[in-house]
Design a protein around this nucleic acid. Structure first.
Lengths: 239, 239
DNA sequence: TCAAAAGTGTTCACAGTACACCCATGC
DNA sequence: GCATGGGTGTACTGTGAACACTTTTGA
């Protein structure tokens, strides 16, 4: 049995897959790497884990630095540990999956990093194994969003049901029946109807809704599915 | 932007949550730690990631060492990185979730580690944050087994439908209707009926079935649920 | 008044559930 | 023959899917 002293110590990094929704499609936020090697190439937002912080702390720090925002939805995806994944020195990277309201983000954007949004279906070549991380995040998002009310993290506080439907349609790349979608969403009692309407996208106008925070927090884990499970499973591409 | 040179390097370990099923209940395999500190205390099976291996390689090595078995079902659960989780020196640990056919295991068991099986509902105090890892694994297993045909990894090659049902009943701590369960399982076409019966648990005897490997591999990701999704979600304890 | 999008109602098929009943066998 | 557990048949119910229809309003 090997003891502590004899072991190799390695660098530990975090990389964030930041997903947003601009009203039309799902977007991924990437930056231009600011140091060598591969300076100037597209990369996920990331950083090294510091001495007195956990990986979660590190991810929060990195996100705050870039966006100015706290309290973003964030979860561990997977840790990438292939010995040669980083060409400089062995580094394990914990990938974090993050959802962001693209509206809130816009104002706070720090330009130092030369960030850019890409359509999630058209991601450029990223350094190291970052493209693989993105693929995993996409799969996870589709999987989880069918069972839990994740997607509200991607929407502004006020949104309409057609907007919500469009988001689901982007996510699963299929169309849903208007009527059935509305009924299913409202049957969860998760949304509160507001008095005002969005009139931009139609003449009649669609009522705004907001998430009922009490129910949202209570029901996050025990949520019934907007997307039926067979259709969820059929939508997920085989590995 | 910090550079590589300035960063802290830390130890990277793997810990395996090894789950088995003895025909009556779900079991967790733990060992007695063989070195200080906490020598002799219960611990998950683990080890340090070596210089030229990935975390997956390390987990496979550790499992092979302990059980003599290759090709066990294994997936990354989460990485634990709290700075003080290991009292000796900062160590990040990648938790792996492993399913094993307890029968195959028995013969191969290396006694060097003083391993022991505990009921998964009655796990002793484990070192560091290992109990937390176990809790996560339990949740993950229940979640995933409802959507994917995971549980066959826990059963011998030949098994009866009542055995399978009992396994699901352990997992979700509820009873299922015999007839409905049978129909649902068989409707997946995943199982092949054999000619012989198990006569140990009843006079009539129950036919053995085996997994059709072709369908198993093809359908692993696109599997319909044995357990309905609302009941899955209701079964999962809130965090 | 017409087009366009929001929102409602209705029907149908099927999956989940409950439960009665038949079957094979050892004692 | 009868108790025991395996296995089948069937009726009820609720949900998902399809689609026709009404509503609102700007042009």
């Amino acid at each position: 049995m090997r003891r502590y002293q004899q072991q190799t110590r390695i660098l530990l990094a975090v990389d964030c897959i930041i997903v947003g929704y601009d009203g039309t499609e799902l977007k991924l936020l990437v930056i231009q790497r600011s140091f060598e090697p591969f300076k100037g190439q597209w990369s996920l937002v990331g950083g090294f884990v510091q001495e007195n912080e956990s990986a979660e702390d590190a991810a929060k720090r990195v996100l705050k630095n870039l966006t100015g925002l706290d309290g973003l939805y964030m979860e561990q995806l997977q840790t990438f540990t292939s010995p040669l994944r980083d060409t400089v020195e062995r580094t394990a990277s914990i990938a974090f999956f993050t959802l962001i309201d693209i509206q809130k983000y816009r104002q706070q954007l720090s330009e130092d990093y030369h960030p850019a949004w890409f359509s999630i279906n058209d991601v450029p070549h990223l350094i190291f194994d970052h493209n693989e991380m993105v693929e995993q995040a996409k799969e996870k998002l589709r999987y989880k969003a069918a069972l839990h009310p994740l997607v509200f993290e991607l929407l502004p506080n006020k949104f309409t049901l057609p907007q919500l439907q469009n988001l689901y349609e982007c996510l699963y790349n299929k169309t849903f029946d208007k009527g059935n979608f509305t009924r299913k969403v409202l049957s969860t009692k998760l949304l509160v109807k507001m008095k005002d309407k969005d009139k931009q996208s139609s003449k009649k106008g669609a009522f705004y809704y907001k998430v009922d925070p009490k129910r949202y927090n209570a029901d996050f884990h025990s949520f019934t599915n907007f997307v039926s499970v067979p259709s969820l499973l059929n939508s997920i591409p085989k590995k």
